[in-house]
Nucleic acid binder design. Structure first.
Length: 520
RNA sequence: GGCGCUUUCGUCUAGCGGCUAGGACACAUGCCUCUCACGCAUGGAACACGGGUUCGAUUCCCGUAGGCGCUACCA
């Protein structure tokens, strides 16, 4: 395998929106492929016709486009190994199933789902395998003529893989090392379903990976138990020398409590588990997405990359896609499940957000302002961003506690920028900051300050600073906090000269008068 | 139940026989300061347990316990 070109695939089922764990799996595939100058394939595994959800495939493609994960071939791109949608490969699978049948490595079975259910109820831990298959209705237990008759009569049947018991099957996993499993515990898996005349995952997966010349299968840990079956299938087809290497990734776990990360956790704790917002076509239910929530794709990628892998030592954790590609190492992936730390996800977003140029915030800020009925200019909005982007915001955590955190999302900005555009229409006299900074003679001081400001020719930050600083020094006054109450109505906001310059003389004086009138 | 994977601060992790067990997020405190912050500094905080192997185990092996997954004509 060493001289083959690296080829990996991400193969989701179009059964709904792409789960964030799937995104990470795809990301690891991408990083690995790019690092080795290989190809990455997008294959749609739609062999379960009953679970097909319209729109899911488009959703998947759009998600990766947003995230900046590019496929080299596959659905929506094309390539030499297509078709890449499994439902369009029926004939191919049929051919390979027959090959197994002819070689006596698989057999047909007539047991209906109902019969199997009954069997499972009757016998505890029933398994369709070497110990039970002769008691079932299949081409091994039935005579050839009987089998022929049943087929001719149109009885539905499945094709099962004939597992030879008592063999030690070796799965060589890049992350977990050598995993050895005895074939006796495996059951005769259904390879070909009667219901929709399509193969099951196991068969389709092996045939496609072989035909598409996949060299590395990087997938979630939930596949580890069936990896021995896959190894056996490669053997049965005689493809062992080109069998891909496996890497089974640890799962993403709930932030709190037990179990793997689910959509419900996101709903409960207020974070998305899908890259994009998803509108369920059946239920009409809307699930939030990272994009709509205000996350930057680079932040999502960076955060996900570090959930289960780490560059080691004291390396900075803020890493671009290029850096990730360079540093990534499958062998250094951790083997145990990672709790989904959405607080850290917000921190990553903060990192990327504040390092964006201020202009990049403008479109989202504009949207927020519009929602609140405010129209502004791009210059003004960039100015506001410059003054406010390092501020913090209060939020309520999962337990209902009030907490503070960095601005992590553009959508956080509104409560922090409101006063730039809307004058305070009331001031809370009982507010801690107001009580501390608005005292007996404050109104008189503000009147004086207003007078000084009226007389300033150049109302820019520098112009004000010169005159007002001189004035405060002369009188030994510290008017800023009270002035802040006038212009903001509370103890927050940017530097006062910056704010008054932004508002302009007229608005500044008007707000000061309002405060003097209301607070006295 | 059976089988497999797994176990270092609250969380993500570094470590690959000898370390004051390192970093990041979160938390706390201090400095800075016209507010809230940002930033900077400091601090608390971990090797699941029991046996081995070894001069020496967080590190290797075996148990126990916990966690996770699989056990469909789903992927």
């Amino acid at each position: 395998m060493s001289d083959r070109k690296v080829r990996v695939r991400f193969a989701p089922s179009p059964t709904g929106p792409l789960h964030i764990g799937g995104v990470r799996t795809a990301l690891y595939n991408y990083l690995f492929a790019r690092q080795h100058g290989g190809d990455m394939i997008l294959r749609i595994e739609d062999t379960d016709s009953t679970r097909f959800v319209p729109g899911a495939e488009e959703y998947i493609i759009e998600s990766f486009k947003w995230l900046g994960i590019q496929f080299d071939e596959g659905v929506g791109i094309g390539g030499q190994y297509g078709p890449y949608r499994q439902s369009e490969r029926r004939e191919i699978y049929k051919q390979y199933v027959n090959q197994l049948l002819d070689a006596g490595k698989a057999y047909v079975a007539f047991d209906t789902p109902e019969e199997l259910d009954a069997k499972r109820k009757e016998i505890e831990n029933f398994q369709y395998d070497a110990t039970t298959r002769m008691q079932m209705r299949n081409s091994l237990s039935l005579s050839a003529s009987e089998v022929e008759r049943l087929i001719a009569e149109g009885h539905q049947y499945v094709v099962r893989f004939l597992i030879e018991p008592g063999r030690e099957v070796l799965v060589d996993d890049i992350i977990r090392g050598e995993v050895i499993i005895n074939s006796s515990i495996l059951d005769d898996k259904v390879l070909y379903k009667s219901a929709d005349q399509l193969p099951t995952y196991h068969l389709a997966n092996i045939v496609d990976d072989h035909l598409m010349e996949v060299t590395h299968v990087i997938r979630g840990e939930e596949w580890l138990p069936s990896a021995p079956l896959h190894v056996l299938l490669y053997e049965a087809f005689g493809w062992t020398d080109t069998m891909p290497r496996f890497a089974h990734l640890p799962l993403l776990l709930k932030p709190v409590g037990n179990g793997k990360l689910s959509k419900r956790d996101g709903d409960k704790l207020g974070f998305p588990v899908f890259p994009l917002e998803w509108h369920d076509p059946k239920s009409g239910e809307v699930s939030s997405g990272y994009r709509e929530k205000g996350y930057l794709p680079q932040a999502v990628v960076n955060f996900l990359a570090l959930l289960g892998w780490n560059p080691g030592n004291d390396h900075s954790e803020v890493l671009s896609m290029e850096e990730l590609i360079q540093l990534f190492d499958l062998g250094k992936c951790s083997r145990n499940g990672a709790r989904f730390d959405y607080v850290k996800a917000a921190w990553f977003n903060h990192q990327y957000l504040v390092n964006q140029p201020d202009e990049a915030w403008v479109p989202s800020l504009q949207k927020i302002l519009e929602e609140n009925g405010i129209v502004s200019t791009p210059e003004k909005m960039a100015e506001v961003v410059r003054m406010m982007k390092l501020k913090v915001i209060e939020y309520t955590d999962g337990e209902g506690n009030k907490k503070k955190r960095n601005i992590s999302f553009v959508s956080d900005l509104w409560p922090l920028v409101r006063f730039f555009f809307v004058a305070p229409d009331s001031i809370d006299r009982e507010d801690k900051f107001v009580r501390k900074n608005w005292k007996e003679g404050t109104a008189a001081e503000m009147k004086q300050l207003a007078e000084v400001l009226s007389g300033i020719e150049d109302f820019s930050v520098e112009g004000q600073k010169q005159v007002v600083d001189a004035w405060t020094e002369e009188n030994g006054m510290r008017p800023w906090n009270a002035w802040r109450i006038c212009l903001v109505g509370a103890g927050q906001g940017p530097d006062m000269y910056e704010l008054s310059a932004f508002l302009g003389r007229e608005e500044t004086l008007r707000r000061m008068q309002f405060a003097i009138d209301t607070l006295g």
